[in-house]
Design a protein around this nucleic acid. Structure first.
Lengths: 346, 346
DNA sequence: TTGAAAGCGGTACCAT
DNA sequence: ATGGTACCGCTTTCAA
C-alpha cells in the first residue's frame, strides 16, 4: 500500500508522476470532477472541491502538458524564434531587450514563451517541424529572411504570427520602426553640423532595415549623395564596422561625417578612427542607429536613433495574442516611435 | 469529397492538419503501418512504404508533437533555463555563447532546445509547472540560486539536469570553471606588475562564482589583503562597476591595481578611471574576468581570464543528454580550462 | 452536481 | 509484413 506524501523512506526512486486518476482515487471522486476543479469551473460542491484540493497536494499532482495540449488543441505557449545569421545573435544587444519585452507581455497573459534559436540548416528544419506539429499557438519571429522555410511554414499554417521587422514579401503582421524616416532624420542632423563629405557604412542589405536605412540616408543627402562613399557590409557587426571604416578612409581620406547602420557598427568604426588618429567629433562626426548599450558606452557617446527594443517585443507578442483570440492582425504593420538622440559623437 | 493537395480553391480557410489516419486512408493501409514508416522501422514492404511516403506529401502530414510526447513519454526537447536577475541577462555576453553552445550540442543529437526565461515570480511558478508537466526531457540551468523553486523542482523530479555554474547546496550535475584558482592566478599576475595597493570590485556574492573569485583574490594577496579595498556590488554589471570604482577611489585614492569581478564590471570601472583622469595601465592596473566581447573592445584591451562560454553550454547539454540515456552524472561537476589572457590594461 | 465514456493523435503489442 | 486494438493523461459532452 502506498503512503501519502513524504514519509516513504529516503531513496525514493523517481516516483511516478501523479495523474488525475490518482487524485480522483485519493479524493474519492471521478476524474471529471477533478478536472473541473483544476480548471476552476463552477458546479462543484464545496465538499468535493476541498477533498480534491487536499488530494492534489498530497499526491503532488501537476497536469501533464502534452495530454492537455492534445485534447485542448492548444498549448498556451508562444514561440519566440531567433534567426540571426552567424553568431551575430550574441552581439546584438537589441535581441535581449526584444525577448524580454515579449516575455513580459506573454507572461502577463499567462502564456509561456519558448524561444527557439535557429543556428543551422538542421535547426531550421527541426523548428519548422515543431511549429507544424502544433508545438505553440503562435510565434514571434525576429530577423527572418524572406525565403526562410520557417516563414513559409507559418504562412501556410496561418499560425498567429508577428514579425519584428518587416521581411519583404511577408504578409503576416509585423511591428517595426520607420527605418527610412529615422535614417533620413539623423542624416539630416549630421548634415546640419556642417559636414561636407558624409559616408555611410551600410549593413544587412538583405534585410528591410538595412535597405531602408540606406534609402533614408540617400534621401537626406540628395545631390550630395556619393555612391563611392557608401561601404556595404553584410551584418550589423562591430568587426565589420571597423574594417569598413578602414576601407572608407583609404578610399576617401577626406570624409568628415559617417552614418553607421547600427551602434555596433559605429563602435567598430570609432575604434578604427581612433587608431588612425581621427578625432571624433572634431575631425569626423559619427552617428549610429539603435541606441543600444554601445551608444552610451562609446567614448564619445554616440548620437543615434533610439530603437524601442523592449516595446517592439511587447507589441509583437500582443499582436500574436490578439490573433490567438481571433482578432485580425493590423494590416500594414505597426510602427513604433524611434526618435533621434543627440550625444557627443557628432 | 475532398480533393488531394493544392487545387482546393484560393481562400483555403485554415485547413485542418492531416493526421496519421488521413495518411492511412490516402495510402490504403492501416495507421500502424503509417506509424512504422514515419518512425523508420523495419518490416514494411517497399510497396507500402512508397504509397505512404507519397500520401504523406500529398496530405501534408506532420506528426503532432503533443500526441507523440504523450504516448512516448518523452518530448525530445531539453529546456534551457535562464534565470538572470534584473535585466542583466541582456548585458551578459556570456549567456548568448552558452546558449549557442548548448543548442549546437542538442541539435547534433536531434533534440530541440527550448529556452525559457525567468524574469518574474510569475515566470518562476509557470516554468516550474511546465517542467513538472513533462514539458522537456531535461534541463540546462544557468545562474540559478540555491533557494530557487525551479532548482527544487528539478531535484524532486530528478529530471536530467546540468547547471552552468555551481549553486551551493545543489546536488545535480554541473559544469563550470575554477573561479577560485583563476581569480588567484590573475591576481598574482597583477601583483607581479609591482602594484602595492590592489583593490577588488567583488560582485554577485550570492553566487558561487562571486564568492570564489573573491576568495581567490584574497588568497593571492595574502598578508597584503585589505578588506577596506574590497567593494562589493550585487551584479556583474557595467553600471555598478562604474559606481564601485568611484566609491573605491574616494575611499582610497592611492589604489594602483584593481581586479574587477567581470569584464563588464571592469569596463564600468575603466570609464570611471578615465573620467577621473587615471591612466590605465600607467596609474592603475586593471584586470577583469570572462574574456567576453568587452575585454577586447575596451581601450585599452583588458587583461582577463578566458571563460569558455560556448564550451560550458555544450558540456552542460552533453551531460543532460548522457543522463537522458541513463548514464549517471559525473559527481563533483566538470571543470573546463580558464586561462589568464594578458592584454594591455595591466 | 457528478460519473461514465468518448476521443484528442499517436505508438506498440498481439495476432494473423 | 500488416491490421486491430489498447492506452498515454486529460477534457468534455451526455445522462443521471
Amino acid at each position: 500500500m502506498r503512503g501519502y506524501g513524504e514519509d516513504m523512506g529516503k531513496a525514493s526512486p523517481r516516483r511516478k508522476r501523479a495523474t488525475v486518476h490518482d487524485v480522483a482515487m485519493a479524493a474519492g471522486v471521478s476524474r471529471g470532477t477533478v478536472s473541473r476543479v483544476v480548471n476552476g469551473e463552477r458546479y462543484v460542491s464545496d465538499e468535493a472541491r476541498k477533498a480534491i484540493e487536499k488530494a492534489i497536494v498530497e499526491v503532488g499532482y501537476v497536469p501533464n502538458t502534452a495530454a492537455r495540449s492534445l485534447v485542448m488543441q492548444r498549448t498556451q505557449a508562444v514561440a519566440f524564434i531567433v534567426h540571426e545569421p552567424d553568431r551575430l545573435f550574441v552581439e546584438d544587444p537589441n535581441i535581449g531587450e526584444i525577448l524580454l519585452g515579449a516575455n513580459a507581455a506573454l507572461s502577463d497573459a499567462d502564456y509561456q514563451m519558448v524561444s527557439l534559436v535557429v543556428d543551422s540548416e538542421k535547426d531550421t528544419a527541426r523548428v519548422a517541424r515543431y511549429l507544424q506539429g502544433g508545438f505553440a499557438d503562435g510565434a514571434v519571429i525576429v530577423s527572418a529572411r524572406q525565403d526562410d522555410p520557417i516563414t513559409r511554414v507559418v504562412e501556410r499554417l496561418d499560425l498567429p504570427t508577428a514579425f519584428v521587422g518587416h521581411p519583404p514579401g511577408v504578409t503576416a503582421a509585423w511591428v517595426g520602426i520607420d527605418n527610412h524616416g529615422s535614417a533620413r532624420a539623423i542624416s539630416e542632423r549630421l548634415l546640419a553640423t556642417g559636414r561636407s563629405r558624409i559616408a555611410m557604412i551600410a549593413a544587412a542589405l538583405d534585410r528591410d532595415s538595412g535597405v531602408d536605412r540606406l534609402a533614408g540616408f540617400r534621401e537626406a543627402l540628395g545631390d550630395r549623395f556619393d555612391p563611392a562613399l557608401v561601404e556595404p557590409i553584410s551584418h550589423y557587426s562591430y568587426t565589420e564596422g571597423a574594417a569598413a571604416m578602414r576601407a572608407l578612409l583609404e578610399r576617401a581620406p577626406d570624409v568628415d561625417g559617417v552614418f553607421a547602420a547600427s551602434d555596433a557598427v559605429a563602435a567598430g568604426a570609432l575604434e578604427t578612427l581612433r587608431e588612425l588618429g581621427r578625432r571624433v567629433p572634431e575631425d569626423v562626426g559619427l552617428v549610429g542607429f539603435d541606441d543600444s548599450a554601445w551608444a552610451r558606452r562609446c567614448q564619445p557617446a554616440l548620437s543615434t536613433v533610439h530603437q524601442p527594443a523592449g516595446g517592439l517585443g511587447r507589441a509583437a507578442a500582443e499582436s500574436v495574442l490578439a490573433q490567438i483570440r481571433g482578432e485580425l492582425p493590423e494590416l500594414g504593420g505597426i510602427l513604433l516611435e524611434s526618435p533621434v538622440v543627440w550625444r557627443e559623437s557628432a
